[in-house]
């Protein structure tokens, strides 16, 4: 049997063949080619044998000791999440419209100040509107990196 055919038989077993035509072709091969059928049977049996029989391994040290090392490492990194945007507390969300109004007020009243330098324009004063199914208002500002991050939940692979 060609290596290509061997791998096709395996892909048939794993439901990884690209098209319906390939599935039909390999099914036909298995029905008529004894060697291919034998190979399929062997691969299937091996898979069945492994299924649900992953070796069980126990942690070689006590759970407390194991955790203590994790806890120490987390504490070393201090913040719960360096990566992560923090969830805005409810009172900040409640005051957000006021902040928006204040921001607009500042913009109008102090355009000279705003033009004086970028730093005077607080990047915190933003408004975020979420889509209907994403009510999370996750955002944060990094002063040190000069960056405002708004995290969109539930949208992968843009």
């Amino acid at each position: 049997m060609k290596t290509e055919t061997i791998l096709e038989v395996q892909a048939y077993l794993d439901d990884e063949l690209a098209s319906e035509n390939d599935v039909k072709r390999v099914a036909n091969l298995l029905a008529h080619d004894e060697e291919a059928a034998r190979l399929f049977k062997s691969l299937k049996a091996t898979r069945q044998l492994l299924e649900g029989n992953e070796p069980e391994v126990k942690l070689p040290e006590s759970g407390d000791f194991y955790w203590s090392k994790i806890a120490r490492a987390i504490e070393r990194d201090s913040a719960p999440s360096k990566v992560a945007p923090h969830v805005t507390p409810w009172w900040v969300r409640a005051l957000a419209p006021l902040a928006g109004v204040a921001c607009v007020g500042l913009l109008l009243a102090g355009s000279g100040v705003l033009n004086a330098g970028g730093k005077a324009r607080s990047a915190y004063l933003h408004e975020i509107e979420n889509s209907v199914d994403d009510s999370s208002g996750i955002s944060f500002h990094s002063q040190s990196q000069g960056m405002t991050v708004v995290w969109v939940k539930g949208y992968e692979n843009p």
Binding site: P80, S81, A84, I138
Partner: peptide, 18 residues
Amino acid sequence: ATDLSQEAWVKAWQRLVQ
């Protein structure tokens, strides 16, 4: 395996919001 699994837990804590 012990060290690396602990590292995985620390990483998970750091990325938990994701």
